[in-house]
Design a protein around this nucleic acid. Structure first.
Length: 282
DNA sequence: CCGGTCACCTGAGTGC
DNA sequence: TGCACTCAGGTGACCG
């Protein structure tokens, strides 16, 4: 579930809690989690210092000493926790349920403290890159621009360049990185734009208003520490932005703007909630 | 270049 | 109580 505000919250909490820590040991319980060979992963990170943790699109970005970069995509159910290193039984780690990776942290106030990655559905993936690989990834165009760094003019150029529907374009991470289903629906509702409208039909004024709402909604959600849904839980508990959702997860209820019943349909392959009255096609 | 569908996984919720 | 079923959202692969 984590989209931009949730990943931003997680990254900020992680940076505050474990930034500057040295990793003494790395253990893994789920090989598919890594897109980097395990021996290379352990070799590079054992003894490394976590210099900084930040957000890159929907990914958590760890910067380590030695110019290593770890990109973690939480997908639906990935989570981090700061907990005791797993118990050992006859030389084998006894992993907590859904725990798949552990970094043992050095020089912590509490002994044997670990940063643990959990993932109920095991969709999450992480990849370790060296500096040239990281630079190459940034310039590859695979990762779209961050909404907060986007000008209205640039956004208009990007969003009108393809023939897809608005909703699909907002979810395209190579165009702009960070929006998921929740904030795409919320942004389109705030802008009174129909999710199935051809993206190429937006006027510059409509693009500017949409980008403004995107930034505003993301900012307010970050301030609320994100939206708590069935799966997402931050390191310090869930956020509260779900209380401010206008259409997402509210199908069958009344539109807060006009009173019409909010509809649920599928657009660009995704569940979409919108108000037929407020969000016109043209 | 598109959209549609499925696969990846598991837990929660629903209806019988 | 249990069982079958659907749903959830992020993304990549595949097909038409």
């Amino acid at each position: 579930m984590p989209e931009l505000p949730e990943v931003e919250t997680i990254s900020r909490d992680l940076d505050e809690l474990v930034g500057g820590s040295r990793i003494n040991r790395v253990d893994l319980a789920h090989p598919k989690l890594l897109l980097t060979p395990l021996d290379q992963f352990q070799g590079c990170l054992t003894g490394a210092v976590i210099n900084k943790i930040s957000r890159l699109g929907k990914m958590v970005h760890f910067e380590f000493s030695g110019g290593r970069h770890l990109l973690v995509h939480l997908k639906m159910t990935g989570q981090f926790g700061l907990e005791a290193w797993p118990e050992e039984n006859e030389g084998r780690l006894v992993w907590p349920q859904h725990a798949y990776l552990a970094f043992l942290l050095a020089d912590r106030p509490r002994n044997r403290e670990a940063l643990i990655y959990y993932d109920i559905r095991k969709f999450g993936r992480m990849r370790l890159l060296d500096q040239p690989e990281f630079d190459q990834y940034l310039s590859s165009g695979l990762l779209g621009q961050d909404p907060f760094g986007l000008s209205p003019e640039r956004f208009h150029t990007l969003i009108t360049a393809s023939r897809g529907r608005l909703k699909g374009q907002l979810l395209d991470q190579t165009l702009m990185a960070g929006l998921g289903n929740i904030y795409a629906d919320e942004s389109l509702f705030a802008s009174c734009l129909h999710p199935a409208r051809p993206a190429s039909s937006l006027t510059p004024a409509e693009s500017a208003e949409l980008l403004g709402h995107i930034k505003d909604i993301l900012s307010r959600s970050i301030a609320a520490r994100g939206s708590t849904t069935s799966n997402y839980q931050g390191l310090k508990g869930g956020g509260s932005y779900q209380d401010q959702h206008q259409v997402y997860g509210r199908s069958g209820r009344k539109c807060p703007r006009c009173g019409q019943t909010i509809e649920k349909t599928t657009i660009a392959g995704r569940t979409t909630s919108y108000c037929r009255q407020c969000q016109r096609v043209s």
